[in-house]
Nucleic acid binder design. Structure first.
Lengths: 224, 224
DNA sequence: GTAATAGTGTCTATGAGACATTATTGA
DNA sequence: TCAATAATGTCTCATAGACACTATTAC
C-alpha cells in the first residue's frame, strides 16, 4: 500500500456547566512544544484502536469518567501540514458533555488539568490550533441544543426543568422565560419523562424531577 | 514523537441533481480489495498537503472541476481498525456539491467513473464502509438545505426559483408547493438576488433569474 | 405573614400551509 | 384560442413570545 505515514491523534473538548457557566477542561503542557501553555487533552491513537475508543480512553484518563453517562461525538478533523511543529499530525476532535458536578479530575495528568470558563479563554492563548477546535466544538454544542435533547447530558440523572433551563442559559449565554421554557419542554414529545418525585433543592415550591426521554430530535426545535 | 504511523486518506461524496434526481459520482475499483465493486472516489493525503486540498485534488481528477463553483465541506472521519483489509487507514470524508450538468467526468480514472442515482445505490453494494459514508453525507446535505443556502450550489450561476425548488424536491424526495416556496425564498433576506433578466427555458411565462445571495444561514429555515 | 420558585392560563402577533387568482409567454 | 408556468393575494390555523396569575414550599 502506497501511503505516507501520518500521526493520528484525538483531541477532546470536554464541556460542563458549573455555577451557571459553560466550562471546558484544559491541561497545562509540561513539555515542548507550547510548554506551559493551556491545551485540550488529547493523544495519539493506538494501532488497533478505534477513533472513538481513543477519545473515550483520553476522557477516562483526564476525568476518571466512564462512558455511560457521557455524551461523546465527533466534531471535525484538523490536518493542516503545519499545525504541529514536531511533524505531520492529523487530529480528530471529539466533543464530550459531562454532568455537573463531574467527578474530580484524576489520573496521570491530574495535576495539570482544570476547568476554565469558556468565556474566559482568550483567543490565541491555547496551544496548537486548539482555539479553533474549541470554538468549533462550542458552536456545535450551541447548535445541537436547539434540535436535540443534548442538554440533558449536562444534567444529573434526575433534574428539574429549572436545572435544564440553566443549562440552556449557560450554553447560549441568554436568559429564557421560565414559564414558556417549561411549557415548551414538557410539550415536546419524549424530551423528558417525569419521575413522579419532587425536590426543593432549588428553593421555593417543590419542583418535579425528570429523567431524559427517548427523543433523539426535538420537534419543534427550541430556538435561541 | 511517539506515534504509530497510520494511513490518512480522503473520500469524496460528490453529489449533483440531474433530471430531477439526486445522483452521486462512483468509481468502479480496478484492483483489490473490493475489485469490481463501486466505491467513492478518494486517495491518500500527500505529506505536505492539507486535508481540504487533497479532497480538491481528488475532485479535480475525477470531474475536471476546479474549486470556484464547488461547495466542499468536511463531513466526518472514519477510522475503524478493520475498515481497510490492507492495513490501518483513517479516511476523512468530504461532501462536494456540483451544478447540473457537471463537466463531463474526465481524468485518470475517467473510464470507471459515473453518476448513479442515490436512491438506486443498494446498501452493502459499495466497497469498504462507503455505504455508511454516503448515507452520512446525504443526510448532511438534506439537513443543511433547511438552514443554509446550500441548494444554490447545485444550480448554475443564474437560476430560476423553479430550478431551485427542483433541487429541494430532488434532495428531499418530497413535493413542495410552488407558490409558498416562491414566497418563502424571495422573502428570506439575502438568500437569492434577482439579476433583472428573465428566461423562458422552463416554458410558460418568463421567470426571473437569480444569483446566490450573501446569506450564510436562512432565517427562518425552510422546513422539509 | 414574606420571599422564592413552580406551574398554568391568556392574549396577540406572526408565520406556515392551502389554495384562488392574475400575468405572460409559446404553440 | 389553449396550455403551461410565474407570481401575487387571501384565508385560516397553529404557535411563539409576553406576561398575569395561582400554587407550594422555607423562613
Amino acid at each position: 500500500m502506497d501511503f505516507e505515514p501520518i500521526g493520528v491523534a484525538t483531541d477532546l473538548v470536554i464541556l460542563t456547566v458549573r455555577s451557571g457557566r459553560l466550562e471546558v477542561l484544559l491541561v497545562r503542557r509540561g513539555i515542548p512544544p507550547y510548554k506551559g501553555r493551556l491545551a485540550l487533552p488529547g493523544g495519539f491513537v493506538r494501532p488497533a484502536e478505534d477513533l472513538a475508543d481513543a477519545a473515550l480512553r483520553e476522557l477516562r484518563e483526564e476525568t476518571g469518567l466512564a462512558g455511560e453517562r457521557i455524551h461523546l461525538e465527533q466534531v471535525a478533523t484538523y490536518g493542516s501540514p503545519r499545525r504541529d511543529p514536531r511533524g505531520r499530525v492529523v487530529s480528530v476532535a471529539y466533543l464530550a458533555l459531562v454532568p455537573d458536578p463531574p467527578s474530580p479530575v484524576a489520573g496521570t495528568d491530574a495535576a495539570s488539568a482544570g476547568w476554565h470558563p469558556v468565556a474566559d479563554v482568550d483567543p490565541g492563548r491555547l496551544a496548537f490550533d486548539h482555539d479553533r477546535i474549541l470554538a468549533d466544538a462550542v458552536e456545535r454544542a450551541r447548535a445541537k441544543l436547539e434540535y436535540s435533547p443534548l442538554a440533558t447530558a449536562f444534567c444529573p440523572p434526575e433534574f428539574t426543568i429549572s436545572e435544564l433551563r440553566a443549562v440552556y442559559e449557560a450554553v447560549w449565554g441568554t436568559a429564557l422565560d421560565p414559564r414558556n421554557f417549561h411549557r415548551k419542554v414538557t410539550k415536546t414529545p419524549d424530551f423528558v419523562f417525569p419521575t413522579g418525585e419532587t425536590t426543593t433543592r432549588d428553593g421555593g415550591r417543590p419542583a418535579q424531577l425528570f429523567r431524559p426521554g427517548t427523543a433523539r430530535a426535538l420537534h419543534p426545535p427550541l430556538v435561541r
